[in-house]
Computed example of a mutant assay.
Amino acid sequence: MKNIVLIGFMGVGKGSVAREVIKHSEYITIDTDDLIETMENKKIKKIFQEDGEKHFRSIEKKVAHWLETSLKNTLISTGGGFYKQKNIKDIGVIVLLDSPFEDIIKRIKAHPNAVKKIKKRPLLNDLKLAQKLYDERRPEYLEVADVVIDVTNKSAYDCAKELLKKVKKYV
């Protein structure tokens, strides 16, 4: 089995879908942002504030290399910009979790932990800038993806079932 790499805009549900996939498959899961926070011993928000985006992206590059050379049979949930890593196609099957920007924001705001989820993602403090970033990234996500799952109005369970069905031909 090859790795599955989940990409998509922040808040689209990569973590939720990953947790459902591992319940219904033999995959284990890791999150690139969690790896980076462990490596740096600080939260992503603090890395951006104290060290800047350039430093964060250099750590992402190290993580991408490690994923490519060290993991198999793993579902990898990535940060919103991880798809830009040059070796992403060598890491595994790329699955885009896709949804319109407005639905992502609605989904986050409806979450019982909404304040914490928004605080964790500083780019969502300015919705106009977040929309602009979404508009820039979405065509690039579509270009990189091997498989696209529309998560709009679907449960994480339904998305996981669809994902496992669609990736069979790649793994």
Rank of each mutant, 00 (worst) to 15 (best):
T29D: 09
K61C: 14
I91W: 08
N87T: 14
K117F: 07
E20W: 04
H65M: 15
H111T: 00
I30T: 05
F48N: 09
E102T: 04
H24S: 07
I88Q: 09
I59N: 12
M10L: 05
V95T: 07
Q49P: 00
K120I: 02
K168E: 14
Q49S: 11
S77H: 06
K169G: 11
V93R: 08
D98E: 15
H55E: 15
K46A: 12
I105G: 00
D150Q: 10
F48G: 08
G92E: 02
F82A: 06
K128H: 02
D150R: 12
K128N: 03
E37R: 07
V21E: 01
P139H: 10
G15M: 15
L123E: 02
I59G: 12
A110L: 07
T78W: 07
K84V: 09
I44K: 06
S77P: 05
N41S: 13
M39G: 13
T152Y: 06
R121P: 03
V93C: 15
R107Q: 07
K14C: 05
V17K: 02
T152N: 10
K89P: 11
K14R: 08
D150V: 12
V63M: 09
K117E: 15
Y27W: 02
L123N: 01
T38V: 05
I59H: 11
E140S: 14
D126Y: 01
I104N: 01
E50R: 05
A160L: 10
Y27K: 01
W66K: 13
V12Y: 00
E60M: 05
I30R: 00
N3P: 06
E143P: 03
R137H: 08
H24F: 09
K166Y: 10
I108C: 02
E26L: 05
A110Y: 03
H24W: 05
R19S: 14
L75C: 03
K132C: 00
K154T: 13
E20F: 04
V167W: 06
K117H: 13
M39P: 07
Y27L: 09
E20I: 07
T32E: 05
K42E: 14
D34T: 13
A110F: 03
F101Q: 00
I22D: 03
I7F: 08
V167I: 12
G52T: 07
K116P: 06
K61H: 15
L96K: 09
S155P: 12
K61N: 14
L164G: 07
A130K: 00
I7H: 07
V95C: 03
V171A: 10
V144E: 08
D158V: 11
G80P: 02
I108G: 01
K42Y: 10
F9A: 02
K165G: 12
E68S: 14
Y83T: 01
P112K: 11
P112V: 06
I36S: 11
N41D: 15
Y83P: 02
L163N: 06
S16T: 15
F101P: 00
K2L: 02
V5T: 09
N73D: 14
V171I: 12
S155N: 12
I36P: 10
K119G: 01
I22W: 04
